[in-house]
Amino acid sequence: MKKYDNKIIFTGPVGAGKTTAIGAISDIPPITTDAAASDMTLNRKGYTTVALDYGVLNLDERTKVHLYGTPGQERFDFMWEILSTGGIGLILLLDNSRPNPVKDMQFFMQAFQDFLKHAPVVIGVTKTDIKAAPSTDAYAEILEKVGMRPPIFEIDGRNRDDVKNLVMALLFSIDPGLQG
């Protein structure tokens, strides 16, 4: 029986819920590399990812999805490059409660533009309960202007089904024939 190993990457700004999302769907205890925050991150949370998060989602007996989460701060951009090597798709998590989530989106789309030339992206917007705007339509409209139409969802990063939907949407956009 042929086995399928897929690698996808979770990225996005500090506090968007990358570590939480991977923890929510991983079938193994996730590997995390948290360190006590001493920068601006401290206003949002006490710990921050400094190298990577890793988890595994077993879709069925032969399909394994390796989940890699990046650090959020720009000073770790070398990890973004290291982690995205060999990836088949990107999940971008945006935190709607941050001051300028649209700018965050544009920043990360730009930072991963080489990767996105050969791999699709799915966007998950978190913390919409704290701040409802911008809506997913608003994000879509902005991306449409630069010719991008990625799937965009409102999600709760703590909710396994929400996060799994994101992963499924990403895998569907890679292989529309996939059985869910």
Binding site: T33, S38, V50, A51, P71, R75, F76
Partner: peptide, 29 residues
Amino acid sequence: ADGLTMAALLPQDVDEDRVGAMAAAMLSL
């Protein structure tokens, strides 16, 4: 521990922020 330089005596052409982030990532891994 989260990759910010607290004090450094590095050559001038070295970017403190990047060195800091890499050291934190390496040590954590």
